[in-house]
Design a protein around this nucleic acid. Structure first.
Lengths: 345, 345
DNA sequence: GCGATCTGCTGAACCGATTAAGCAGACGGT
DNA sequence: ACCGTCTGCTTAATCGGTTCAGCAGATCGC
């Protein structure tokens, strides 16, 4: 029992015995239009009876607005992080009564440009470019009046952006360990190729700087391992190696949860127990972090909040600027508090 | 350097010295319209010069089509599975030159209905309802002419659906173990509350049936454990218990990868090695399955293909019907082939 | 009693595309 | 020379809303 065709404004007007103009004014609550309460009543009743909803295409045509924003990501649909960004975008957009058009892109720059242009051709009211790794990317220029925000990334021409506050997070995680009494800390850390290249990452360098400065300020001894890529395999290999060389280590800082998972595996193979024998902290808060035993203490990348922030820049009162969002420390069970700190040995 | 306003058909016509009609006919390659090659040339040149792209709102208004489909899911953006469904939908839609509007819904039925109506109000050309767990759900009726497909689920009124072939997958995974020579198999299996209730799952019962029938046909001995929820904790607890009672078990079938992760943890605590001492198979192929060591052999839920299939039903030649899609066996390293099958002990 | 103002409402234009209908000129047949 | 047909193009209507301008009739001031 569904009507064959959706009711139009003209249908409502006819049923209410009014003009299209009158009904439009009433349903949109235009201030200054002086229509009788009685007429308003009739119009609303007719609209309700017919299940009238305005045709968005017609509205867009007139207003030049589509009440739609575009979301483009380099790996939108591939990683669990993407989910959080999509979620944040969707929810925030909904609050502003907008819908979201989503496009997928590989790492390929030309695909991003193509997706971007397609969104513009669809006449979206704004575009969010969401990146999985906080990189520098090129984004085509948008027609005047279409705002663009980069979430978790940057552009060479400095479009408005939202980034995680990696420096603060680096300090925070180092402090979590030091506050618990750890002073000899393994650190699976530096990726010179990536940290030095904004096309790979604009934030990893800050994360590392935060960690290093906090450790240095409080006089902790750190043992750094360097890798090509932050992978589970790297965590496994470097943990094994660092512990062989420096058995005095009591805690590890892993660059990511994936690396931390490798640390766990290595410790398990060595018969060491987390957190009894070794404490571990890391960054990102992937789903994995809550699944491993014991739960991993990690600094969460606030993807959902960053996306929400981006939408608020596009549609809300928030200024189009550069913003840093805090990375909350998610405390689980991978850190042991050392009762006393023995000075010798 | 972006133009202040997008070019319209009228702009192109003016520049080309033709009427809007002529330009429209040319740019749309209408057969039967007899315009000179010379005019076509001018029209195309003018369109290119102005960067003309038709305004989709105007086209929709005229045609009644929006070239947009809606995707609604109960947990769209929350799980890694959702990503695959979104990806499949996006890619397939792109092939049909459609864009995708995505809406989020909690488990709450009323939210699904609300999201659905919102899509209809936006005049989408079709709707995909994608579910994370293959459940029975209620979907409001759509206006005539708007097709709806349920991906990984069912509706009481039997809307077209795409489901995984769980029965075949159950048989397949049991066979993987038996083909490798295993005959005494632990099986973390039955969830009576869920398997018996289509509102919870319309497929788990089939998965279990496939496993049980395959095991029975080939005379394997199975040891079943029952739980309330398929969780990592369940896998951990029941593995520990089953092995204590039945040390002769050489392999486990876990209901999901999450359960299998619990099995891994229990085996690790018991000092048992996968696959040397115990083999493990499961279902779903979450990201986790490739991350654990050794990699988990599992039957993949083909979310991306299911979504693609759904889109093809909406937009392509595929018949709107009920379809079962195969769940591919992803062979990793968690199954050991037993050389010989000792009869005693 | 008459213009000015206010009240309640309507007509028509407009957004940008598609398309049915039709028109001027060239050409062909007789 | 005249009618019919074909070619190449244009005019105008249409989709469904929003909005500018304006029109009757009532009310008011003096």
């Amino acid at each position: 029992m569904t009507p064959p065709r959706r009711a139009t404004l003209a249908d409502v007007a006819r049923l209410a015995g009014l003009s299209k103009t009158a009904v439009s004014l009433i349903l949109n609550d235009r201030p200054g239009s002086r229509l009788s309460d009685e007429a308003a009543e009739r119009a609303r009743a007719a609209a309700a009876q017919l299940g009238y909803k305005p045709n968005p295409a017609a509205q867009s045509l007139r207003s030049g607005k589509t009440r739609t924003i575009g979301f483009i990501s380099d790996q939108v649909t591939i990683t669990r992080f993407a989910s959080a960004m999509v979620r944040g975008t969707l929810r925030a957009a909904k609050e502003y009564d907008h819908t979201v058009l989503i496009a997928e892109t590989g790492d390929d720059v030309s695909q991003l440009a193509a997706a971007f242009d397609e969104m513009i051709d669809r006449r979206v009211d704004g575009v969010i470019v969401g990146l999985m790794a906080a990189r520098m990317v090129d984004v085509p220029s948008a027609p005047h009046g279409v705002p663009v925000v980069i979430v978790n990334g940057r552009t060479p021409d400095d479009l408005p952006s939202v980034l995680p506050d990696e420096y603060a997070a680096g300090r925070a995680m180092a402090s979590v360990l030091m506050d618990a009494g750890h002073t000899r800390i393994g650190f699976i850390a530096d990726i010179p190729q990536i940290a030095g290249d904004p096309r790979r990452s604009v934030t990893i360098a800050r994360r590392l700087a935060g960690i290093r400065e906090a450790l240095a300020e409080r006089g902790a001894t750190s043992f750094e391992a360097v890798g090509e890529n932050w992978t589970t395999a790297l965590g496994f290999a470097e943990t094994t190696r660092l512990l062989a060389d420096h058995p005095e280590i009591t805690a590890f800082i892993a660059g990511t949860d994936g690396v931390a998972f490798g640390v766990y595996q290595a410790l398990s193979d060595l018969g060491l127990h987390v957190p009894r024998d070794i404490s571990v902290v890391s960054f990102d808060d992937e789903e994995l972090a809550s699944l491993v035993r014991p739960g991993l203490t990690t600094a969460r990348l606030p993807y959902e909040q960053m996306a929400r922030h981006g939408v608020e820049m596009l549609l809300g009162d928030r200024e189009l600027a550069h913003e840093l969002l805090p990375m909350p420390v998610i405390a689980r069970d991978s850190v042991r508090t050392l009762i006393a700190e023995p000075t010798g040995r």
